[in-house]
């Protein structure tokens, strides 16, 4: 088994192209203003197909997280942190929180996007704790 690598559709390609350039982008519905994730052909609030890519701030908070102690396959070395991140723009995404002390994690903490190469062609967003956004300067 190898790590699962996304094979973007043409609709999704701008998201992955941006990741490769170290940018997080999200689709904004031109009809209702809803911000989407994951990328779609139609808005999941109003079903409009008038969607436009815009840069995201990369800031978010932890909606939930888990420290995986037994990896899904030998390609994933445990422990690693899987989290649901509520992006500042609204949508939620699954990701990994990297370089974090598991004991320092909590629901509601601020995180900031970073990028990690998953293969030669694919770079994915990952997140790091960002204590400065929680009003504390002394990070882990």
């Amino acid at each position: 088994m190898a790590k699962p690598i996304p094979r973007p559709t043409p609709t999704e390609q701008p998201f992955y192209d941006a990741c490769s350039e170290g940018k997080l982008v999200l689709q904004h519905c031109q009809h209702c203003g809803h911000v989407l994730f994951y990328p779609r052909t139609h808005c999941d609030a109003c079903q409009s197909d008038q969607l436009a890519w815009e840069d995201a701030s990369g800031a978010g908070t932890i909606a939930s997280y888990t420290v995986v102690r037994r990896g899904v396959s030998t390609d994933f070395e445990a422990p690693y942190v899987i989290a649901l991140i509520d992006l500042a723009e609204g949508p939620r995404m699954m990701s990994q929180i990297i370089d974090a002390d598991p004991d320092a994690l909590a629901v509601g903490l601020s995180v900031k996007v970073d990028f990690a190469a998953w293969s030669e062609d694919i770079t994915l967003p990952v997140f790091r704790l960002h204590p400065a956004l929680d009003g504390g300067g002394a990070g882990p």
């Binding site: 790590k3 699962p4 690598i5 996304p6 094979r7 973007p8 999704e12 994730f37 994951y38 909606a63 939930s64 997280y65 888990t66 995986v68 037994r70 990896g71 899904v72 396959s73 390609d75 994933f76 690693y80 899987i82 989290a83 649901l84 995404m93 699954m94 990701s95 990994q96 629901v107 998953w118 694919i122 994915l124």
Partner: peptide
Amino acid sequence: HYEQPYGPTVPAYYALIARA
């Protein structure tokens, strides 16, 4: 594309629910 590449297991999905 948006979950499996990060290596979640089925217990991990339910752990997210448990933590919440």
